[in-house]
Computed example of a mutant assay.
Amino acid sequence: MIAETICSAAAAAGLGIAAVTAYRKRFLAATRIAAYALVPLGLVLTGAVQWLADTAFSPTAWAGFGVLGLSWLLFMTTRGVERRTGGSRKERKAAAKAARAEAVAPGASQPALGRATPTARPASPKKAGGSGEDFSDIEAILKKHGI
């Protein structure tokens, strides 16, 4: 009951400040202040404040949060154990690589990732001199924009 009174008083004070701001012909700021002032009033009218107050002082709700925390702890523990039983990172990578090698039939080629399109241009060779950087793509973009 006290929470609703406090929220309603805060909303009334905010709307009063918005009215003074609008009187000073700062309508955009006044509208923003009014919007912020109406939030606590909306929370009171929807019952969210009552629900929050009931939850904060409810031992059943806190027990529920405890159960959720325990559930999270169990998930994280099983994940950690699962990672540790797989060996080191190198061993897991080697096992994954071996599994992929077994999946492909001997003598079969790997499937192509994609086909070349007729509009795709071939990669331009790197210039022999300099630092090895190829600025032809950048030059083409700048020329396209007239720079």
Rank of each mutant, 00 (worst) to 15 (best):
M1A: 04
E4S: 12
T5W: 00
C7F: 13
S8F: 08
S8Q: 13
A9R: 11
A10W: 10
A10C: 15
A11S: 15
V20P: 00
A22F: 07
F27R: 04
F27C: 04
L28R: 14
A29T: 09
A30Q: 11
R32C: 08
R32P: 00
Y36I: 03
V39Y: 13
L41G: 02
V44D: 01
G47A: 03
V49I: 15
V49Q: 02
A53N: 06
D54Q: 13
D54A: 11
A56F: 04
A56K: 04
F57A: 14
P59C: 09
P59G: 09
P59R: 14
A61C: 04
G64M: 10
V67A: 11
V67M: 07
V67L: 10
G69A: 15
G69V: 11
L70S: 06
S71F: 12
F75I: 14
F75A: 14
M76A: 08
V81S: 04
E82I: 14
T85L: 14
G86L: 12
R89N: 03
K90Y: 09
K90E: 12
A94P: 06
A95W: 03
A96P: 00
A98Y: 01
A99G: 03
R100Y: 05
R100M: 14
E102N: 05
A103D: 01
A105I: 10
P106V: 06
G107T: 07
G107V: 06
S109I: 03
S109T: 08
S109Y: 03
Q110L: 14
P111R: 02
A112L: 11
G114E: 15
A116K: 10
T117S: 15
P118E: 14
T119S: 07
R121V: 14
P122H: 03
P125Y: 13
G129E: 07
S131V: 09
G132V: 05
D134M: 00
I138R: 07
E139K: 11
A140S: 11
I141E: 15
L142R: 02
H145R: 05
I147S: 01
